[in-house]
Design a protein around this nucleic acid. Structure first.
Lengths: 114, 114
DNA sequence: ATTTTGTGAAACCAAAAGGTTTCATATATA
DNA sequence: TATATATGAAACCTTTTGGTTTCACAAAAT
């Protein structure tokens, strides 16, 4: 099975879980308590998150605390960023074009639409 | 069916497709030509990418050119960025800790491990 | 010592994902 | 006009997902 960060964050429930434990680690039951799906289902999501390194689990007595490893999201932002410059350039071009239209409008004076 | 950017970029083939058309639009067959899966399969991927706004298709005669709308990836980087400051803070803390260790080491002089 | 509590694992299920082959159709081209 | 090309759609199939219920078991609490 594929188990990378992209696939892990594709599921909205898993994104919610990440959000929930972003600020402080929580044990499995605490996480599960905040969802309407079963604990077992949440457990499986946590497993997937763990398998791709977005979460690490620390045993403490009989409880297991799940901690978010948000720096793993670097993989995602790196991927996005390789295109950022690119699309921003395009947006700049669009902006320039709109400005050009704007100045033409001024020259011609405002025209009513339709 | 869920059809958001996160789900769309979860599939490696779709990420490849995006990469392929990032620089210039390509028609469906050209895109499909670069994969070992069938044209129909690629077509389906393109459909998913289109449905979530990452690709727009422009008809030109009998061909349909697929253009990447990379700015849609903003949704992803926005999501990641809400955590960035957070994990960077943690990394800073780690760095500080390591530096602290380092300076202690210097004070005590180098010790052999084991 | 018993009972609760926190968790993992197994068996099972329906739906979605990703793929294939085949057929239909509109547009170019010889 | 007849043929080749670009694409969309349908039917079908297997694997993966996301979920459930049930059972097992170790650690805490009574």
């Amino acid at each position: 099975m594929r188990r990378d960060v992209f696939q892990a964050i594709a599921d909205p429930t898993r994104r919610e879980i990440l959000h929930m434990i972003a600020h402080q680690p929580l044990n499995v039951n605490s996480v599960a308590g905040n969802f309407d799906v079963s604990r077992t289902a949440v457990y499986k999501h946590l497993k997937i998150l763990t398998e791709c390194g977005l979460v690490v689990v620390k045993q403490q007595g009989r409880e297991r605390y799940c901690e978010a490893k948000l720096s793993k999201l670097n993989e995602v932002s790196d991927w996005v960023n390789q295109y950022r410059e690119f699309w921003e350039k395009k947006l700049d071009a669009l902006e320039a074009y709109l400005e050009e239209l704007q100045s033409k409008k001024k020259k011609n004076g405002r025209k009513k639409r339709k």
